[in-house]
Amino acid sequence: MAGMKYLVEGQRWVARHRRQWGFGLLPGLITAAGYAVALVVLALRAEDVAAWATPFADGWSSPWAGLFRGALTALFFGGGLLLALLSFTAVTLLVGQPFYEALSERVDREQAREGEPVPESGLPLWRDLWISACESLAVLVRATLWGLLFFALGFLPVVGQTVVPAVGFCVSGFFLTEELTAVALQRRGVRLRERLELLRSRKMLTVGFGLPLVLLFLVPFVAVLVMPGAVAGATLLVRGVEGEQEREAVD
């Protein structure tokens, strides 16, 4: 619930700053158009790929071959959709890096206490883009490995169609939160390994923020609309975690 609260607060922030929200739509629209084309092609070709990958099923009696390949087609498309969900945020953040960086910094400025310095990376834009691209690729590789694992587990009876997808959504939410919090944490000089350790130490908070976004991203064009607010909410989440760390240090 705490994670969801940060997400809602982020949407409220962009609702109060409509100009920032408007500019934030452009990177998402560009990325969404490209992904829409790719997913349509995947949907049209998924059945052919399933048939090509299972030549051993050609001699199976009806309806088993059709049912097996139908399930494989669904899993293949689901894996592609999962990969799109995970990479959409990374690509959108990369395309809109200058804007989202400024948006996150403005959230920090508004929330900062009097005299509190606002974190700045101090790096040139090209360096920030390079670091962001490299770390996003590393996260995508990790997420892809999880996706392959869930794809294989999807063949398990009952569990593969119930528990595995549910866990998969939670893992997607974790990585989605990592991508969004990276905007604020990179300005603070926190690199990928440290970010993952930080989020793993607060798994419920992390999943609570990212899981609703994963579900929202399943609805066409919603991802584009909520991205600016998601970046703002992730910045608020980072500030909340920093406050917790300060209190823990004092205790």
Rank of each mutant, 00 (worst) to 15 (best):
S87Q: 09
L216K: 14
L81K: 12
R142S: 04
T162K: 14
A133N: 01
Q161C: 15
L153D: 01
F56E: 05
A46V: 15
L39F: 06
V214M: 04
F76E: 03
F68I: 12
L196E: 01
Q161K: 15
L26H: 07
W21Q: 08
M4Y: 10
T73Y: 00
T92M: 09
G233T: 03
L213N: 06
G229N: 07
G70E: 06
A65L: 10
A71I: 09
A43D: 01
V95A: 11
R109H: 09
A143R: 11
T73K: 01
Q161S: 15
M204A: 15
L213F: 02
P228W: 04
Q161H: 15
G147M: 07
G147K: 12
L42Q: 03
P220D: 00
R18T: 15
S172I: 13
A65V: 11
E9P: 10
F175Q: 05
L145E: 00
T181A: 15
S136W: 13
V49M: 12
L145A: 04
V158T: 10
L75P: 12
K203S: 11
T235P: 06
L72S: 11
L148H: 10
R239N: 08
T73V: 00
L82A: 14
R187T: 02
V118L: 02
G243L: 07
F150E: 02
L39A: 05
Q161E: 15
F169V: 12
L42W: 08
W60C: 08
A74C: 10
G96V: 11
Q111D: 10
V190T: 06
M4K: 08
A232F: 02
Q97P: 08
R142Q: 05
T206Q: 14
L93Q: 10
F56Y: 09
E9F: 06
R12W: 02
G233I: 00
G80N: 01
L25V: 08
L125S: 04
E101V: 14
